[in-house]
């Protein structure tokens, strides 16, 4: 069984979590149409260490996991805005 650690609720089986995709920052509102379309559709699909949204379903907690998408190893998890605290 694969485990993931929710920063609030602790270590739980992966089945309690929902993947929310990569954490991304939107371009500024005055960006070009092409930049906006690229933001809407394109993803950084190549493997590597990424920050991703994850959701602990029983408690409704959204948090961020730093994960290597090649090895599926999670380096750390934290609440958004509390990146430095761990």
């Amino acid at each position: 069984m694969k485990l993931l650690t929710c920063p609030v609720n602790g270590t739980r089986p992966l089945s309690e979590f929902v993947f929310g995709g990569e954490y991304r920052v939107a371009p500024p509102a005055d960006c070009t149409d092409a930049e906006w379309a690229a933001y809407v559709h394109n993803r950084s699909g190549a493997p590597g260490i990424k920050n991703e949204w994850w959701y602990h379903a029983p408690s409704g907690t959204w948090f961020i996991a730093e994960r290597n998408t090649l090895t599926d190893k999670v380096m750390r998890t934290y609440l958004k805005g509390q990146e430095g605290s761990k």
């Binding site: 069984m1 609720n9 739980r12 089986p13 089945s15 379903a57 029983p58 408690s59």
Partner: peptide, 25 residues
Amino acid sequence: SIDLTRAALGTQEVIMTQFAGVSVV
């Protein structure tokens, strides 16, 4: 799938987990 024995739980702990696939408190 997590340990819910008396010993594993703090006395006043609230656990949010899943029972048979259903989210529970």
